[in-house]
Amino acid sequence: MNKTSNPAELAEISKRVRRHILEMITAAKSGHPGGSLSATEVVVTLFFDIMKHDPANPKWKDRDRFILGKGHACPVLYSTMAEAGYTPVDQLTTFRRLGSIYQGHPDVRFIPALEASTGSLGEGLSVGLGMALAAKLDGSPSRTFVVLGDGEIQEGQVWEAAMFGAFHKIDNIVCIVDYNKIQLDGFVKDIMPLDPLVDKWTSFGWHVIDIDGHDINAVQKAFHDAEAVKGKPVVILANTVKGKGVSFMENNPKWHGSAPSREECELALKELA
């Protein structure tokens, strides 16, 4: 795979990933476009710039690890991993079909290069902390990155994990909250508000970095700054737009979990040409 730190190239890859996301969800006639599109810059920047990993040797012992806590956003993960060379790009449109490696939520049985099977919200951070702890015990330089949804952190287990990470000073993990302000039933503020979110994570003992999650320069800087933090875990609050990149999907709860029609997909792809 061709890694790059060039923001323009990362933006180009993000655009391709967004197109894949729309194509695969349209073909499947189901899936979660909104939260896949909102997390695109974060996931692409991790796989193509920040993380030390090797698609030709996915079980490399000292690799950095990635867990998508918000497993329903797997189209962004599958598309990025396919672009990186882990899995076939031309099979992305088999998403959600019987026998496809691109299961409805990430499943290690079908793609062994995935680090965790997710889909039940609130568990990914704990699993990531366990992996980060194992790396510390082994004296490995491996870092672990976990992307959570904002609705996901309504789960109590996330805060159990937050306490654990701070108490055990697990500083080789970075948690990213894809803060797109929308969940299935509507706007987060109307379902179960999270603010003040910086204060919450800070009071749980985490170093908080608050950024625009679509600004690739800011995303890159956040990951570099996170690496310099020692003795405590880091959370990046990535302020994002649900449905980012497709005008009619942006900021609309409808696109949390519904697939575009073929016509809507064509309109969307034109915007991402």
Binding site: V127, A134, Q157, M163
Partner: peptide, 19 residues
């Protein structure tokens, strides 16, 4: 892990998954 069994199980799963 403190009194947080759900977290403990998943922490253990992460440790095990990493070898």
């Amino acid at each position: 892990c403190g009194i947080a069994e759900a977290n403990m199980v998943a922490i253990g799963a992460g440790l095990s998954a990493a070898g």
